[in-house]
Nucleic acid binder design. Structure first.
Lengths: 131, 131
DNA sequence: CTAGAACCTGACGTAGACGTCAGATTCAAG
DNA sequence: CTTGAATCTGACGTCTACGTCAGGTTCTAG
């Protein structure tokens, strides 16, 4: 498929796909013209790249680890790097969970405060109305 | 306390604290000089700000929501915004969990592949040693 | 053949949370 | 009073994953 179709199928922009190629995350064939051609498997690969980006990995790190994730093979050094990233993601999940729980509490309390106490007051102006 | 001490206590840089003030996230008294003075409660506040930054909130959003989180009070609009952020964080947690689980699988498989199959091979050349 | 869509390669712009340097002022200690 | 540490206010630099524009080539439909 061509780059426009890959972009449509994956939901990422054409610009992003070219960027991935520049970062050596994605390769394309050039069949006698300057236009890129991708195999169907490119869809999965792009989605995997996106997933790793969202997990906070940088291009450089993804370049290193992507072959491992695809092949389930790694050198000891790469295995360390994989483990480090997994642990980092684990800590991030823990942090986010604490934050979400805190927001949950705030939402619950604020809702109750609105219902019981100064209900309609707040809706008018965002400025603090005294006491 | 002064800005250097607050930085030391919270682990964030002096520059970051000034930036927070510029973004209206943090206020300081100026006792007859140009130097900032913070109350002890500033430590908690800075840590809360950091927590929200790490959760992916932007300065603008934190400015809106910080009073709610501190006061447990919100207008309906702010309550919507709080809920939206909580949900976004929830989705992020779900995504990260999937990614972490995938990395766990990769780590397990790659470790087994190393131990059972071409163990010391990988360090030298990635070529598979035939079945 | 021709128009328009899709694609190409640079190359500069963007946003966010600071880092860092310059030059001046202020504080704490001796 | 003097000196060094801490702080002050700009203001430009950084890093990353793209967005966007310019100017040109290629593909596809009619």
């Amino acid at each position: 498929m061509r780059i426009g179709e890959l972009a449509a199928r994956t939901g990422v922009s054409v610009r992003a796909l070219r960027y991935y190629e520049q970062q050596n995350l994605l390769t394309a064939e050039r069949g006698s013209s300057s236009h890129r051609r991708y195999p169907p498997s490119a869809v999965d690969r792009v989605q995997l790249i996106q997933q790793l980006y969202q997990a906070g990995l940088t291009s450089r790190t993804i370049v290193d680890l992507l072959p491992c994730v695809v092949d389930d093979r790694a050198t000891p050094a790469l295995l360390d790097q994989l483990t480090a990233e997994r642990d980092r993601i684990g800590r991030h999940i823990a942090d986010l969970t604490r934050t979400r729980d805190r927001l949950d509490t705030v939402i619950a309390n604020a809702t109750r405060n609105m219902l019981t106490g100064a209900a309609c007051r707040d809706a008018g102006a965002p400025g603090p109305a005294g006491s």
